[in-house]
């Protein structure tokens, strides 16, 4: 079974997406090589080399302003929305270099690398349409199919029972935690392989953010998750792999146990001790 369609309802049959650019991404590795990002002449990322392991939760940690978010947004090229941005180096997704990807490859890359936003950010439409939006864009249509997708992914994030009676009411009416789970479901519905999460729990109350964390842990058997966080405790709770960044550089990268318990680098140790943040 193709790993790209982990939740495919049609197990063994035709997946939702037939005309897919990466048909059998058994080895859809995501890694950066000497990646530099300049914004208006300032070098935000400096020759970053990083490797995102598959089916794990990778946490990017580091003091604010260290380039965590920029790195995350380079993976799906959302950095493009900033005026005066320049990329150098290589980011590989399988065989595809993300840095030099053409516009048409870009929409495909963004399909494979989903994003869970920082603040809950439902689209200005109904709950149902929020999930269906991405599918429709990628050419999935048909009432029955969409109904199935919506139900499946709302169940996957544990939202189905809460909203099944009001699927067509505006998504803005949901609570913050529900909205964030909706955003997660929305990203999952287009069946990505990677999930980027940019401090996706920072705007939520503790209980909702726990729910999201648990979902991430549950989802990692099917997805590779990259998250930016500046709460170290959260990283310690759920990270399998850690990338520590400082001033635009990757200082240390490795297994979470090893980085947290036995950091190799002086700066990492100081950061973990709380000497700076």
């Amino acid at each position: 079974m193709s790993k790209l369609f982990p939740h495919s309802l049609t197990k063994g049959k035709e997946p939702f997406f037939v005309d897919h650019k990466f048909p059998h991404p058994e080895n859809l590795r995501l890694s950066t090589h000497a990646l530099s990002v300049y914004i208006g002449g300032n070098q935000i990322l400096k020759f970053v080399n990083a490797e995102i392991p598959q089916n794990k939760i990778t946490c990017i940690i580091g003091p604010s302003g260290c380039g965590k978010t920029t790195l995350l947004r380079t993976f799906n090229r959302l950095v493009d929305t900033i005026e005066g941005v320049k990329l150098e180096g290589v980011v590989m997704l399988g065989e595809q270099n993300i840095v030099t990807a053409s516009a048409s490859e870009l929409t495909e890359i963004r399909r494979v690398i989903g994003l869970v936003p920082q603040r809950p950010c439902p689209l200005p439409m109904s709950i149902y349409d929020n999930i269906a939006y991405g599918c429709r864009i990628h050419g999935i249509s048909g009432r029955k199919k969409l109904d199935a997708v919506v139900e499946y992914y709302l169940r996957a994030v544990g939202l189905w029972d809460e909203v099944k009676d009001r699927l067509h009411s505006p998504a803005g009416k949901l609570s913050g935690g529900q909205q964030q789970r909706l955003c997660l479901a929305r990203s999952l519905a287009i069946e990505p392989s990677y999930l980027l999460a940019d401090e996706s729990t920072s705007a939520l109350d503790p209980i909702s953010s726990r729910t999201i964390e648990e979902l991430f842990v549950k989802l990692k058997k099917d997805y590779s998750i990259v998250m930016v966080t500046h709460t170290l405790r959260q990283a310690k709770r759920i990270a399998d792999h850690v990338i520590f960044m400082y001033m635009g550089e990757v200082i240390e990268e490795g297994d979470a146990q090893q980085v947290f318990n036995n950091p190799k680098h002086e700066l990492t140790r100081k950061y973990l001790e709380g000497s700076f943040s």
Partner: peptide, 24 residues
């Protein structure tokens, strides 16, 4: 909010397809 546009882009939508969101 720029997040709204980004949410649409991150689902693989083109700028033109994002018009429905802006209009709403």
């Amino acid at each position: 909010p720029s997040e709204l546009l980004e949410a649409s882009y991150s689902l693989g939508a083109t700028r033109l397809e994002t018009i429905s969101i802006v209009i709403r």
